[in-house]
């Protein structure tokens, strides 16, 4: 399964190469054009096979990068110091395995054994500069042979099926979105697709800025992964989305207010095709949509997200039904756009 392959690859913001290569290989036979830009965005073009009239140019975007770590120092003891790339809660880092650099060097994020800690030490969260990665090296010299400053480290989690049609793994945010995009590229659709697998979303949506500038599409649909907080210890009103309730539509977030016509078209597409959907009931966070919609003279945009529990952790959970429904909804939306002949004001 492509989603499984993609989710297991390391691809921290700025180091998306392996994800990009895997996607390139997968979509090559189905598309008209394929290129990378200087940021590392993978830009894929596919024109409709049927029909002559000019079709709207739709930008589809999903980011390839995931949150992770970057090595910024090596201790005399051979332990690696790191910084976080993107937003990670320190509390999920402790005692997790990672893989580092292009050679996939394994390492673990260690912590003093509980026996060695004073009682009140355990009550405090650890800061990033109190944590380190152990690769088993005996001293700095040996570590330097295996790892260089600036190497990236990603969580090392294999995808597992669990429960009822659920998957557990890392980086579903946003390899799940990438997998949706790949699937759409394999289908015959009535609009001109510019699919962009973007880079550096987790550190300020930077790849989307340059890609949107280059493409200047008529409209854009962003496929994302968003928090599902339908679990204990969060208050009733804030589940954001629910796992299994279908793709989530964004009304607004920190960087973006959804275009009214796109939102209406998404809703109509879902209702016409009896696809269960929900709203993202939360307005914090940001996606590539913010920057894309403000590119040049403004680009009408919308966001469809796959609900995902425990986002930005080494063990996140999605439900396959949501994943397939997101493919279905995106496809239905693109047909809708074609029927409407675009969405011009």
């Amino acid at each position: 399964m492509l989603l499984k392959t993609l989710a297991e690859l390391p691809g921290v913001s700025g180091d998306e190469k392996r994800v990009r290569e895997a996607i390139k290989k997968e979509v090559q036979p189905y598309v008209d054009e394929l290129k990378t830009d200087c940021m590392g965005n993978l830009i894929v073009n596919k024109r409709p096979r049927k029909g002559k009239k000019r079709s709207p140019k739709v930008m589809l975007a999903a980011h390839m990068d995931e949150v992770g770590l970057i090595i910024n120092g090596i201790e005399k003891s051979g332990h690696l110091r790191f910084l976080k790339v993107g937003d990670i809660d320190n509390r999920v880092l402790i005692s997790k395995p990672v893989i580092i650099g292009v050679e996939n060097i394994p390492g673990v994020i260690g912590v003093k054994a509980v026996h060695l800690q004073k009682p009140d030490e355990r009550k405090k969260t650890l800061k990033t500069n109190q944590l380190y990665i152990d690769i088993g090296a005996k001293g700095k010299e040996e570590a330097e042979k295996m790892v260089s400053l600036g190497d990236y480290a990603a969580f090392d989690t294999k995808v597992k099926e669990m429960g009822e049609r659920c998957l557990c793994g890392k980086a579903f945010d946003n390899r799940a979105g990438c997998a949706v995009l790949v699937e759409l590229l394999k289908r015959e659709l009535p609009v001109e697709l510019c699919a962009v697998f973007t880079v550096q979303e987790e550190i300020g949506s930077r790849g989307a800025i340059t890609a949107a500038y280059t493409l200047d599409p008529d409209l854009a649909l962003i496929i994302e992964t968003t928090s599902a907080a339908d679990f204990p210890e969060t208050k009733g009103i804030k589940p954001v989305t629910n796992l299994g309730d279908g793709p989530a539509l964004t009304l607004m977030d920190q960087s973006f207010i959804s275009d009214g016509k796109i939102l209406a078209a998404l809703r109509a597409a879902a209702e016409d095709n009896e696809i269960k959907y929900q709203y993202r009931r939360f307005t914090s966070g940001a996606t590539d949509a913010g920057n894309i919609s403000l590119s040049k003279e403004g680009i009408p945009a919308g966001v469809v997200s796959i609900p995902c529990r425990y986002l930005h952790s080494p063990a996140s959970v999605i439900k396959l039904d949501d994943f397939y429904a997101t493919i279905g909804l995106s496809e239905a939306f693109l047909h809708k756009v074609s029927e409407m002949g675009g969405l011009n004001r």
């Binding site: 830009d37 970057i70 500038y213």
Partner: peptide, 22 residues
């Protein structure tokens, strides 16, 4: 070497994303 985990607080931050990327 100086490692930055995201966009730096220098001119490089703005230059990298000018136009179609630099």
């Amino acid at each position: 070497f100086d490692v930055s985990a995201g966009p730096t607080g220098t001119d490089a931050r703005a230059i990298q994303i000018a136009r179609g990327g630099i």
